[in-house]
Simulated assay, not measured.
Amino acid sequence: MAFQISQTFLNLPVKDLKRSIAFFEALGFAFNPQFTDDNAACLILSDTAFAMLLTESYFQTFIKKDIANATKTTEFIMAVSVSSKEEVQELVRKALASGGSASNEPQDHGFMYTESFQDPDGHLWEVFHMDPTYVHEA
């Protein structure tokens, strides 16, 4: 039996929760106030995908290992799909103008266009648009 995930929650440690909230609001994202307080903020990525921005001290309560310093090491790349190449460019432009930093050069593969940025804590975000006619059903 194959599992189907109904919702996705990515948990990210952040140094300054208010700064992180302001950064993602400047990009046009909203937060779910029901799951937002002084320790955490629920960033709404889509109807089924969320990023929980957790203060480092609160994040530490969920783990036994050290928190990775995302400005020096890469723990993952969060890839998010948008509906057009122009939306990719706009979201990355907003990220760079709001305190994010460049990550990689844009890549145009014909069927897929990507750009990326680092948020203020160094987490890597890749924004892409893929031609929906290219995707084949499995």
Rank of each mutant, 00 (worst) to 15 (best):
K94C: 10
K94A: 11
K94M: 07
A95H: 11
A95P: 10
A95Y: 04
L96K: 06
L96V: 00
L96A: 02
A97D: 10
A97I: 01
A97K: 04
A97E: 12
A97W: 05
S98Q: 02
G99S: 07
G99T: 07
G100W: 07
G100C: 08
G100Q: 08
G100R: 06
G100N: 09
S101M: 10
A102M: 02
A102S: 12
A102V: 09
S103K: 07
N104C: 09
E105K: 15
P106W: 10
Q107W: 03
Q107T: 12
Q107K: 13
D108R: 06
D108A: 08
D108F: 05
D108M: 08
D108N: 12
H109G: 09
H109N: 15
H109Q: 14
G110P: 13
G110A: 14
F111G: 11
F111Y: 15
F111S: 14
M112E: 11
M112F: 00
M112N: 07
M112R: 11
Y113L: 10
Y113E: 05
Y113R: 03
Y113Q: 01
Y113V: 07
T114M: 13
T114D: 12
E115N: 10
E115D: 11
S116I: 05
F117K: 10
Q118Y: 10
D119K: 05
D119G: 08
P120V: 09
D121I: 08
D121M: 00
D121N: 05
D121E: 01
G122A: 02
G122V: 04
G122N: 10
H123L: 04
H123P: 00
H123E: 01
H123M: 00
L124A: 06
W125K: 06
W125H: 12
W125V: 11
W125M: 04
W125R: 04
W125T: 09
E126W: 02
E126K: 06
E126S: 10
E126D: 14
V127N: 00
